[in-house]
Structures are given as structure tokens and as C-alpha cells.
């Protein structure tokens, strides 16, 4: 499960990000003139940072779990790869979320 948990979180976050943007634009599009400083971008940004933090935390947990997997090569393998998956997902979240800084949302 640890093998894919991080990526599942990434996927859910991605769907929420895209869906939230679409719904936000459909319901209450912020003024284009505001550029990237508006409520929608702020929400998406908070979401992104929160998700990154969560993934980093889970990755750290996974890494700590190394000790308990002492000796069991299987568990060790899963734990190592799991931690890396979390780390990579965190990086992916952060990078994909990057454009929120620069672009106006609904155009």
C-alpha cells in the first residue's frame, strides 16, 4: 500500500486542483485584472502546500518505519521504495502547483 499511497494522494490532489479550478471559474470567476493574486489562486496554493506537507510527513513516517523492518528484506524493500514514492509525489505536487503563482485562473 505504501508503494502507491503517495501517488494516490497526488492523483486525488490533482483531480481536486483541476476540478476546483473549473468549478471556481464556473461559479465565481475572479476579475482577470487581479492577475494571479485572487481568492481562487490562494485556495489552490494553500491546497498545494498542505498536500506537500502531508506527503513529506508520510514519507518521513515511512522512513522511520525502517527500524521496524529490520531483517525482513521484503518489508525493507517496500519501506524504501514507499518513502521515495512519497518524496517524489511531494516534489510533483510542488512543481505542478508552481504556475499558481504566475497565472490568472480563468482565462
Amino acid at each position: 500500500m505504501h508503494l502507491v499511497l503517495g501517488l494516490i494522494i497526488w492523483a486525488v490532489w490533482f483531480v481536486v486542483l483541476y476540478g476546483g479550478l473549473s468549478v471556481g471559474c464556473a461559479l465565481a470567476p475572479p476579475d482577470v485584472a487581479l492577475g494571479s493574486l485572487n481568492w481562487l489562486n490562494a485556495v489552490l496554493l494553500i491546497l498545494t502546500l498542505g498536500c506537500t506537507a502531508l506527503l513529506l510527513y508520510l514519507g518521513a513516517c515511512c522512513w522511520q518505519g525502517r527500524a521496524s523492518a529490520d531483517g525482513d528484506l521484503q518489508r525493507q524493500f517496500i519501506v524504501h521504495v514507499g518513502a521515495a514514492v512519497h518524496l517524489l509525489s511531494a516534489a510533483a505536487v510542488l512543481l505542478v502547483g508552481l504556475p499558481v503563482f504566475a497565472l490568472p485562473p480563468c482565462i
Binding site: 490533482f14 483541476y18 479550478l21 502547483g97
Partner: peptide, 29 residues
Amino acid sequence: ITTGFISFGLWVHHMFTVGIPHLAQAFFS
């Protein structure tokens, strides 16, 4: 494993010219 997942988050890059909001395009980009 990562490829398997991320590849499900790319589909809109075939649709950059259909007029989806630019910010959403940037995510997929």
C-alpha cells in the same frame, strides 16, 4: 510505478487548443 500514476494526469496536453483555462493547462503542462 510513478510513470503509471503520472500518466493519468496528462491527458489534457492533447487538448491545449480547445480553450481550457490557461492555469489548468499549466498544471497539465
